[in-house]
């Protein structure tokens, strides 16, 4: 077994029940490796998840404390949790694209505004795959899915000059990056930076879904084909994009530790009021 799995994951939940060819494992490994690189232990991290492939597959894998919220609500839950946890705990969150950029976007943006100290890894498999493969708000234009049989023609969050990361940046997030699950060391570097930011970090990771997306949109369950398809549409930030480019990978925005996180603000203020208060 992988040394990371042995160190950090519960035997009961490994190997995961993900489909063969799924890139979620790469994403999770990238995050876990970053945690390991930073010498964080099981007790230092609270692992939060939500609904969908990314949520259910990663729930309870972490040996330490774990929780899963209903669809899209984990960001609000984290906002409360960050105030009540003992000091020094890190909230790490693996969620899907539908969860973060669809049903939970309002809570996500508000968590970014508050600069909640948490690292959110949006594991993007280009649609709602655990329900069988419907399009989401990050599904590339024209993709045939179970709910877009004529090709996805609704404007998405990632093309035509729109980028969801710009919106989250404007909302107040202090670290933003985008990667492919097969980015290896390049993605790992961003993950480490994300974890080192005491504030709201979000890493958007595109990973391949073979069972649903590849079979419907690309017409084949050939894993290598899907990996290549994603790779050919991603360009690093320092490279020049071409007409096929959908995703720019790398660090989008790094204002790590530039403003106090939510819990520090609230706790500082309350301490101040509490000290001055005569009413007990």
């Amino acid at each position: 077994m992988d040394y990371l799995a042995e160190k950090y994951f519960r035997i009961r939940k490994t190997p995961s029940t993900a489909c063969s060819g799924c890139g979620l494992g790469q994403t999770q490994k990238m995050l876990t490796k970053a945690i390991d690189d930073l010498d964080l232990g099981i007790e230092d991290v609270i692992w939060a998840t939500s609904i969908g492939c990314s949520g259910r597959q990663t729930f309870a894998m972490w040996k330490g404390d774990g929780l899963a919220a209903t669809h899209g609500r984990i960001y609000a839950m984290m906002s409360g949790l960050t105030l009540s946890l003992p000091p020094g705990k890190k909230i790490v969150c693996t969620v899907g694209d539908g969860d973060a950029f669809g049903i939970g976007l309002q809570h996500l943006l508000n968590a970014a505004r508050r600069n909640v100290d948490a690292t959110v890894v949006v594991c993007d498999n280009l649609g709602y795959q655990s329900t069988g493969g419907q399009y989401s708000w990050t599904t590339p234009e024209g993709s045939v899915t179970d709910s877009s049989p004529y090709g996805m023609y609704e404007p998405n969050w990632i093309q035509d000059g729109r980028d969801i990361l710009n919106i989250i940046r404007e909302a107040g997030a202090t670290f933003l990056a985008r990667h492919m699950s097969m980015d290896g060391e390049y993605g790992l570097e961003s993950m480490r930076k994300a974890l080192q930011n005491r504030g709201f970090s979000l890493v958007h990771v595109i990973f391949p879904c073979i069972t649903n997306y590849a079979s419907t949109a690309l017409g084949t369950r050939n894993t290598v084909n899907m990996f290549r398809w994603i790779k050919s549409r991603a360009r690093r930030m320092d490279e020049t994009p071409d007409k096929d480019t959908i995703w720019r990978t790398g660090v989008y925005f790094d204002a790590s530790n530039s403003r106090p996180d939510y819990a520090s603000v609230i706790k500082g203020k309350v301490k101040d009021i509490d000290r001055r208060s005569l009413v007990k």
Binding site: M77, S84, P86, H107, V270
Partner: peptide, 24 residues
């Protein structure tokens, strides 16, 4: 008394924040 008041973006978030507080 050293407690926290949070104003949420909606009621759904408000009670989820409470869950977060209670979980801690």
């Amino acid at each position: 008394v050293g407690g926290y008041y949070l104003q949420a973006e909606d009621e759904c978030a408000a009670m989820h924040m409470c869950i977060g507080g209670a979980l801690g």
